[in-house]
Design a protein around this nucleic acid. Sequence first.
DNA 1: TACACAAAGTGACTATTGTCACAAATAAGC
DNA 2: GCTTATTTGTGACAATAGTCACTTTGTGTA
Lengths: 228, 228
Amino acid sequence: MKAEELANIVAEHSLFADCDEAELSDIILRGHFVQYEKGDEMIMQGDPGNSLLILLSGNARTSMIASNGHEIVLDYAEPGQVLGEIALLDGGERTASVTAIEPTTALTITRSAFEEILQKHKNMALRLLKVMATRIRTANTMIEGDRAYTSGPRLARYLLRLSVVGAEEGRLKLDLSQSELGNFAGMSREHINRQLSAWSEDGIVSVESGKVRILNHATLSNIANADS
Amino acid sequence: MKAEELANIVAEHSLFADCDEAELSDIILRGHFVQYEKGDEMIMQGDPGNSLLILLSGNARTSMIASNGHEIVLDYAEPGQVLGEIALLDGGERTASVTAIEPTTALTITRSAFEEILQKHKNMALRLLKVMATRIRTANTMIEGDRAYTSGPRLARYLLRLSVVGAEEGRLKLDLSQSELGNFAGMSREHINRQLSAWSEDGIVSVESGKVRILNHATLSNIANADS
DNA sequence: TACACAAAGTGACTATTGTCACAAATAAGC
DNA sequence: GCTTATTTGTGACAATAGTCACTTTGTGTA
């Protein structure tokens, strides 16, 4: 793999967005290329965390299983995303799993390789700090939303989080089943279904052949900030 | 202020735990010493975030007000804690407020000063990365707990989070009113009251003159991981 | 000590959301 | 193209926790 290729893959907001070619090829040099099939666990909850992943292609789900069996989806990752850096940095075990939800490729970087990269390219640390700051912000917003709002506004928020910015026809980044949406938005599959049906009636979303689309982005945003 | 003093103040797990004297005095040199009274807002939600705080003495509450008025307490900070680094790093506005809950002193560091410190002491970035990793971990655990468990286990978790490790007589780090506990644990004041009373009956906690104490740490831990 | 204000305790009722149990509709594999 | 599995749709019911409306108990201060 060449630095150019990685540069193309890596998304705009990614950790590596403004890396120069020297940095990128250094990263590639020190990393291992890995392939996953749909359903493969790229990172496993409970394992010690001695490496970090950079998602190159495909999509993955970050989720955790609580001690009572409840599954919580924390986020979905796109190409360019860094995964598993938390356990790598603080030395703790992995508190969440990352599962490929389609055929996926990634670059694995071990702790020592990562430390070398940080040492050699000193801007790297600052970039990673920014990425992590945004991640904390997202987590806090998630806590806020979960706590302060009832199911309607909450589902609206999670749908908007899945929505693409310049989305033609309001298509979402991922076509999730209603049970998955439930695990992401923190509500039961049945409840998701009822809420979606209601919104479908009002022309806010459409649910054709399992695929949810946002028809009225504006009202959905209003709902997301509604009083209840 | 002298580097030694800061060294003494700063807690074990703090960002500055293993800073040498040169680093500490550099930080002091570039920061401003500020005092707050009980109730003062040290950081205000909605403001642009151009500085960071290091709590030197006193205690503070990090909380956010949702658009529907709901107040959510994210965490309580002790001396040594870094506050407000998220907005500083990612350039966004402050998503939470930090309020002094007792007379408090802090060291304010502006963005430029902070960048100088990072530049000069390159271990600093790595340390901050660790701190932030732990913070993401805490936030994720909070999301997990809020989602997967009912009020009982949840309150147990938040009480344990407030408990001191070698706590003589199970005293908590902070004596919170039941309404505050409610905002922290995400449940109504009344519900907190009922749950606490029930546990008090069973000898798991005691609630004397508004102060909660953990009498049976072991069972409370069990409750925190119960099936419901 | 008395007054005022804030915090805690408690009962009754309500609301929201989850659970269970199916039927219907898709999708996937052979 | 048929069979099987996995989603989706929906009704009835249960449960958990919030709200309201008070009373009671503390706490701090003039």
